[in-house]
Nucleic acid binder design. Sequence first.
DNA 1: CAGAATCCCCCATGATACTG
DNA 2: CAGTATCATGGGGGATTCTG
Lengths: 139, 139
Amino acid sequence: MSQGNIDVTHDREFLDERPVCTVLEALNRISGKWAIGILLNVSHGPARFTELERAVPGISRRMLTLTLRNLERDGLISRTVYATVPPKVEYRATGMAVELYDSLTALTAWAERHRETIAGSREAYDREHGRPAGADADC
Amino acid sequence: MSQGNIDVTHDREFLDERPVCTVLEALNRISGKWAIGILLNVSHGPARFTELERAVPGISRRMLTLTLRNLERDGLISRTVYATVPPKVEYRATGMAVELYDSLTALTAWAERHRETIAGSREAYDREHGRPAGADADC
DNA sequence: CAGAATCCCCCATGATACTG
DNA sequence: CAGTATCATGGGGGATTCTG
């Protein structure tokens, strides 16, 4: 294209619709405060309920259960029950989840590369403006 | 506790703490229903407020403003005001955001690769269990 | 051990209206 | 055009209790 006269409207606002939706789909099933933490843990090998409870600091039993169920429903983890006493349940990452793990690595790298910059940007922003944006203390 | 075995807990639950937190940091600033949509749009070139409002289907003025402010605060977008009449404001992705865009591509690819599988997994899950997990209709 | 069931609160988001 | 100000809400998430 280029030089022509047909170069209408810096061509934006249309090529997004799909990708946005797809990414959103992806994000939706790894959303919530706990899904990622669980996924990362389970990717290292099978884990039991209580192990995960300890491994994901701050999670409640309720949230662990709910998140686990949703991940299972989406096929990101498998759940194996051993009919023993006391009960034993093992959670494993599926192939899909392992691939996702690899993708998350890119995000991790990005976050680490820019951790400082972002913190600085926030400070600067908060210094000149009040502090209207949401306050963050965790992590 | 464990059966007098020395092979303590297939060594898990520790190597996570950091990565989880880092990824969470990353996810936190691209979280919310709208950040991604805005980021993707802005990554194609500078965009004005109203353009974004049209480009991100379903977003409200309020949410557009809030998300824009937060992204600016984190240094992911820049805001340029032109003292003209009527007012003109341009938003651009920073280098950081562009790098993030690349990372999101991995997620997009993942979502597209497994779209079918996930949908199937959900159907199957909902068929044998009731449908306790959150219902989803969007996208 | 691995959950299920309840109650409750808060914050992100939506709807609506006003303005430099 | 590019916002701000207010009010209302819903569901994500926490605390607690009960069970196979």
